[in-house]
Design a protein around this nucleic acid. Structure first.
Length: 269
DNA sequence: AACGTACCCTGCCGGC
DNA sequence: TGCCGGCAGGGTACGT
């Protein structure tokens, strides 16, 4: 499913193709889900930015805000699940959204999207520091996995990359966020950056269900490097203990029960 | 306030 | 073999 790396890879691929181009019109049949898209017609694209898992087309007036949901993405060719078509002056972009969890909307200001107005710092920016993480996790009782999925704390992490970062930092997903000491938070901070950076370089993750493909329909390759995500019962790449799965905040969480010990500061010692 | 849970939607998988 | 319930999960709305 598209998370920060997949959206960033799409952005990098699309940017040189859309910058300076005019959107002639946007065609779709789901006005409840894809809102005010007529307002984008006739406008030129000045930039294509990413914020968390959102893509933002900066137009002459306003912005076209796009979210891939859990199965969406832009494609250069139509698919059986094309839900909208962006007709540019020299090419068409097809919005592929099989499960219809995606989001496509024109807004005057990005902050008009509630989540964009409250979104936490970009994990690969300088604003995301170990001190910031310590501050927002302090005193919280919620499981660290749940906190990492909260876009208001950190932007762009989803189920795959939060599990992979927790594994790399050797932190159990159910650990209360406030029980993490500075050393483990520093490790987590580094792990988040490393996992995301490597995933972007690998073109993102494409799972067996192909819920994410790049616009040119090529897959990403980071799934080869997944240590725990989707690998229940398979040996941990570090210690060969079978990977376990627990449910946290309604989501499956994969972890190594030996490398990622349960409990807080004391238990980790 | 801080947290968990049901829901949206569709494709796919396992069980019978 | 074929049907079908259950699961997957971004974000949101609502309950506790």
């Amino acid at each position: 499913m598209p998370e920060l790396p997949e959206v960033e890879v799409s952005r990098q691929l699309l940017l040189p193709l859309v910058r300076g181009r005019r959107i002639e019109r946007i065609v779709h049949q789901d006005p409840k889900r894809y809102k005010d898209t007529d307002r984008a017609a006739g406008q030129r694209i000045h930039d294509l930015r990413r914020r968390g898992k959102f893509l933002i087309f900066d137009l002459d007036r306003g912005h076209l805000v796009v979210h891939f949901g859990m199965s969406g993405g832009f494609r250069f060719a139509p698919t059986p699940h094309t839900r909208a078509v962006l007709e540019l002056e020299d090419r068409r972009l097809y919005f592929h959204d099989p499960r219809r969890f995606g989001y496509l909307r024109w807004v005057a200001r990005p902050e008009a999207v509630p989540l964009l107005a409250t979104m936490g710092p970009e994990p690969l920016s300088e604003a995301f520091t170990p001190a910031y993480l310590r501050r927002v996790l302090a005193g919280r009782r919620r499981p660290i996995k749940s906190a990492l999925l909260d876009q208001r704390l950190v932007a762009g992490l989803g189920n795959i990359y939060s599990d992979e970062a927790l594994f790399k930092a050797r932190i159990h997903p159910l650990t209360p966020a406030g029980a993490l000491g500075p050393r483990r938070i520093a490790r987590l901070h580094g792990a988040i950056r490393e996992v995301l950076t490597r995933a972007i370089a690998a073109g993102g993750s494409t799972l067996a269900d192909k819920s994410y493909l790049r616009p040119d329909a090529r897959p990403g390759y980071f799934q080869i490097e997944h240590a725990v995500y989707g690998r229940e019962g398979q040996p941990c790449p570090v210690c060969a203990t079978p990977i376990a799965r627990v449910r946290v905040a309604g989501r499956s969480s994969y972890f190594c029960p030996r490398c990622q010990r349960a409990g807080g500061r004391l238990a980790s010692k």
